Simulated scan of single mutants.
Amino acid sequence: MEKVILYVDDPAYAREFLARMAASQADVLVRHWVLVACAPRMTHRISKWVSHSARENWRSKWFAKVQEQLLPLLQARASQVTPVLAKGPLTDLTKRLKLEHGAAQVIDARRPKVGVDLEPVAPDVAPPGQSSWALPGAVVGMGALLLLANELSE
Protein backbone atom coordinates (compact mmCIF):
# COMPACT_ATOMS: atom_id res chain seq x y z
CA MET A 1 0.00 0.00 0.00
CA GLU A 2 1.46 3.31 -1.11
CA LYS A 3 1.40 6.05 1.53
CA VAL A 4 0.83 9.66 0.49
CA ILE A 5 0.88 12.78 2.68
CA LEU A 6 -1.37 15.32 0.94
CA TYR A 7 -1.31 19.00 2.02
CA VAL A 8 -4.52 20.93 1.23
CA ASP A 9 -5.74 24.46 1.95
CA ASP A 10 -8.59 24.76 -0.59
CA PRO A 11 -10.83 21.73 -1.26
CA ALA A 12 -11.94 22.89 -4.73
CA TYR A 13 -8.36 23.37 -5.90
CA ALA A 14 -7.36 20.04 -4.33
CA ARG A 15 -10.12 18.22 -6.26
CA GLU A 16 -8.81 19.70 -9.54
CA PHE A 17 -5.24 18.83 -8.54
CA LEU A 18 -6.18 15.23 -7.73
CA ALA A 19 -8.10 14.90 -11.01
CA ARG A 20 -5.00 16.01 -12.95
CA MET A 21 -2.85 13.67 -10.90
CA ALA A 22 -5.18 10.70 -11.51
CA ALA A 23 -5.21 11.41 -15.26
CA SER A 24 -1.40 11.35 -15.40
CA GLN A 25 -1.10 8.11 -13.44
CA ALA A 26 -2.48 5.09 -15.27
CA ASP A 27 -1.81 2.56 -12.51
CA VAL A 28 -4.37 2.76 -9.73
CA LEU A 29 -3.09 1.47 -6.43
CA VAL A 30 -4.77 1.26 -3.08
CA ARG A 31 -3.30 4.12 -1.12
CA HIS A 32 -3.16 5.28 2.46
CA TRP A 33 -3.79 9.02 2.29
CA VAL A 34 -2.74 11.27 5.15
CA LEU A 35 -4.89 14.33 4.45
CA VAL A 36 -3.28 17.38 6.09
CA ALA A 37 -5.62 20.37 6.09
CA CYS A 38 -3.92 23.77 6.42
CA ALA A 39 -6.57 26.20 7.64
CA PRO A 40 -6.34 29.80 6.37
CA ARG A 41 -4.61 32.18 8.73
CA MET A 42 -6.57 34.90 10.46
CA THR A 43 -5.20 38.40 10.22
CA HIS A 44 -3.82 40.23 13.22
CA ARG A 45 -6.82 42.55 13.25
CA ILE A 46 -9.34 39.72 13.37
CA SER A 47 -7.45 37.85 16.06
CA LYS A 48 -7.68 40.90 18.33
CA TRP A 49 -11.48 40.64 18.42
CA VAL A 50 -12.02 36.88 18.34
CA SER A 51 -11.34 34.63 21.31
CA HIS A 52 -9.05 31.60 21.10
CA SER A 53 -11.97 29.20 21.56
CA ALA A 54 -13.93 30.90 18.75
CA ARG A 55 -10.89 30.58 16.44
CA GLU A 56 -10.48 26.89 17.29
CA ASN A 57 -14.22 26.34 16.76
CA TRP A 58 -13.98 27.98 13.32
CA ARG A 59 -10.91 25.86 12.44
CA SER A 60 -12.73 22.65 13.41
CA LYS A 61 -15.79 23.61 11.30
CA TRP A 62 -13.52 24.43 8.36
CA PHE A 63 -11.73 21.08 8.80
CA ALA A 64 -15.09 19.24 8.81
CA LYS A 65 -16.06 20.93 5.51
CA VAL A 66 -12.72 19.97 3.94
CA GLN A 67 -13.20 16.35 5.02
CA GLU A 68 -16.78 16.35 3.72
CA GLN A 69 -15.60 17.44 0.27
CA LEU A 70 -12.42 15.36 -0.07
CA LEU A 71 -12.96 12.10 1.83
CA PRO A 72 -15.34 10.52 -0.74
CA LEU A 73 -12.80 11.25 -3.50
CA LEU A 74 -9.85 9.89 -1.54
CA GLN A 75 -11.66 6.81 -0.22
CA ALA A 76 -12.38 5.57 -3.74
CA ARG A 77 -10.89 2.19 -4.65
CA ALA A 78 -10.82 1.07 -0.99
CA SER A 79 -8.12 3.57 -0.02
CA GLN A 80 -7.63 4.49 3.61
CA VAL A 81 -7.63 8.15 4.76
CA THR A 82 -6.21 9.63 7.95
CA PRO A 83 -7.27 13.30 8.34
CA VAL A 84 -4.96 15.71 10.21
CA LEU A 85 -5.44 19.40 10.99
CA ALA A 86 -2.11 21.21 10.61
CA LYS A 87 -0.83 23.23 13.55
CA GLY A 88 2.65 24.69 13.73
CA PRO A 89 5.45 24.54 11.14
CA LEU A 90 4.67 22.21 8.25
CA THR A 91 8.21 20.85 7.93
CA ASP A 92 8.05 19.63 11.54
CA LEU A 93 4.64 18.08 10.90
CA THR A 94 5.97 16.29 7.80
CA LYS A 95 8.86 14.84 9.81
CA ARG A 96 6.47 13.66 12.52
CA LEU A 97 4.08 12.11 10.00
CA LYS A 98 6.93 10.31 8.20
CA LEU A 99 8.11 8.87 11.52
CA GLU A 100 4.56 7.84 12.39
CA HIS A 101 3.56 6.37 9.00
CA GLY A 102 6.92 5.33 7.56
CA ALA A 103 8.17 6.19 4.09
CA ALA A 104 5.57 8.31 2.33
CA GLN A 105 5.34 10.47 -0.77
CA VAL A 106 4.65 14.14 0.07
CA ILE A 107 2.31 16.06 -2.26
CA ASP A 108 1.66 19.77 -1.82
CA ALA A 109 -1.80 20.50 -3.25
CA ARG A 110 -2.19 23.93 -1.67
CA ARG A 111 -3.48 26.72 -3.91
CA PRO A 112 -0.65 29.04 -5.05
CA LYS A 113 -1.30 32.64 -4.06
CA VAL A 114 -0.02 35.73 -5.86
CA GLY A 115 2.40 37.74 -3.74
CA VAL A 116 2.40 35.22 -0.88
CA ASP A 117 5.24 32.77 -0.31
CA LEU A 118 3.81 29.49 0.92
CA GLU A 119 5.62 27.74 3.73
CA PRO A 120 7.49 24.66 2.46
CA VAL A 121 6.06 21.33 3.64
CA ALA A 122 9.40 19.50 3.46
CA PRO A 123 12.98 20.49 2.63
CA ASP A 124 12.86 18.61 -0.69
CA VAL A 125 9.33 19.69 -1.77
CA ALA A 126 8.93 23.15 -3.34
CA PRO A 127 5.67 25.01 -2.61
CA PRO A 128 3.30 25.16 -5.61
CA GLY A 129 3.56 28.14 -7.92
CA GLN A 130 7.08 29.07 -6.83
CA SER A 131 10.16 28.70 -8.94
CA SER A 132 13.71 29.92 -8.84
CA TRP A 133 12.88 32.39 -11.65
CA ALA A 134 10.14 34.21 -9.75
CA LEU A 135 10.48 38.01 -9.79
CA PRO A 136 8.74 40.44 -7.45
CA GLY A 137 5.96 42.44 -9.09
CA ALA A 138 7.72 45.73 -8.41
CA VAL A 139 10.79 44.62 -10.41
CA VAL A 140 8.66 43.54 -13.38
CA GLY A 141 6.66 46.77 -13.22
CA MET A 142 9.80 48.91 -13.11
CA GLY A 143 11.23 47.03 -16.10
CA ALA A 144 8.04 47.61 -18.09
CA LEU A 145 8.08 51.30 -17.14
CA LEU A 146 11.70 51.65 -18.30
CA LEU A 147 10.92 49.95 -21.63
CA LEU A 148 7.93 52.24 -22.15
CA ALA A 149 9.99 55.35 -21.30
CA ASN A 150 12.70 54.21 -23.76
CA GLU A 151 10.12 53.73 -26.54
CA LEU A 152 8.57 57.16 -25.95
CA SER A 153 11.92 58.97 -25.95
CA GLU A 154 12.84 57.69 -29.42
Rank of each mutant, 00 (worst) to 15 (best):
V50L: 14
L29S: 10
A54N: 07
V8D: 02
L71K: 04
H32M: 07
Q105W: 06
S60A: 15
R15G: 02
D108Q: 06
G115T: 08
L99Y: 08
A54F: 02
A122C: 06
W33L: 10
V125R: 00
W62S: 02
D124E: 13
R59L: 11
P72R: 09
D9S: 05
P123F: 06
Y13C: 06
Q69A: 15
T94Y: 04
V81G: 08
R96D: 12
F17Q: 02
P72E: 06
S132K: 14
K3G: 01
P136K: 13
L118I: 01
L148K: 09
H52S: 13
A19E: 15
V28T: 10
A19W: 07
M42W: 14
A39K: 07
I5P: 00
E100L: 09
P136H: 13
A54Y: 05
W49N: 09
V106H: 04
S47G: 12
V116N: 00
K95Q: 12
V28Q: 10
V114E: 12
L71Q: 05
V116I: 13
V84S: 06
V121T: 01
P136F: 11
P123N: 12
M42I: 04
P112D: 06
S79D: 04
E119S: 04
H32C: 04
L148Q: 13
A144S: 08
L85Y: 00
L152W: 11
L146R: 09
H101E: 11
E119A: 09
G137R: 11
D117A: 13
K95D: 10
H52A: 14
K48S: 09
V81I: 12
E100M: 07
K98Y: 02
A134D: 15
V114K: 15
R41Q: 07
A12E: 14
A14H: 03
L29P: 00
L70S: 03
G141R: 14
H52V: 15
V140G: 00
F63S: 03
G102I: 06
S53T: 15
V114W: 13
A78D: 15
G141K: 12
A109Q: 04
G88I: 07
E119I: 03
V50E: 04
H52D: 13
G143A: 15
L146M: 12
A12Q: 12
N57S: 15
E119F: 01
D10I: 06
A149R: 13
V34T: 05
D117N: 09
L97I: 02
L74K: 01
